[in-house]
Amino acid sequence: MEAEFTLGTPSLTPQGDAITRLPTGKVGIWIFLAGEIMIFGGLISCYILLRIANGGWAADAAHVNWQIGTLNTLVLLTSSLTMILALAAVRAGNRDGVKLYLASTVALGLLFLLVKAYEYLAHFREGFTPLTGTFWSFYYLMTGLHALHVTGGIVVNLVLLIMAIRGTLWARADRRMEYAGIYWHFVDVVWIFLFPLLYLSLKLT
């Protein structure tokens, strides 16, 4: 049992470690994500219920561009790949790989935000603002909140990248990368549901 305690985070009590053998950081990130699930889940549920109640908002939904949505989904899925490859590189001791994959994840995250900004500008030019109607209020709220989460993830990944370049990441690189990755993949999962709800629904209403 003594050997198992040494595997846990030093700040954990031996009792807690003996029960779950989970690092506090991992429990912390999942509790944080539980709150995020409530936020996005609540929003998505309300969107679905109100959309059913209001006949589908087909006229409004016709103005979103599914091609751009598909492209952005591909960008985010690819960023999830580069993020998990960064973790695999940490575990393989491949420091150059970590830097390359982290930089790729940051770049893909920025590309996602750029495409989203282009979409927003196009919608604003057409006269669709958050005040145009219920569909557009939900559209801007859900995609805007998601974009804020992407921004947060980019900042975290950028910090990790700077630490990797400076050589200060490696002491606890495995856990740092794992927790940052769990958050980044969660942001990806949220988009996986937002994409059909907001972009593919035109043909289904």
Binding site: W30, M83, I84
Partner: peptide
Amino acid sequence: LVIRHYMHLKAEHVLIYLIALLPVLFI
């Protein structure tokens, strides 16, 4: 696929499953 293989939930402790599934149940 993302949750199981990228977030590694396939190898997680039951406590993590509980933390993740409880808010889904509430929703």
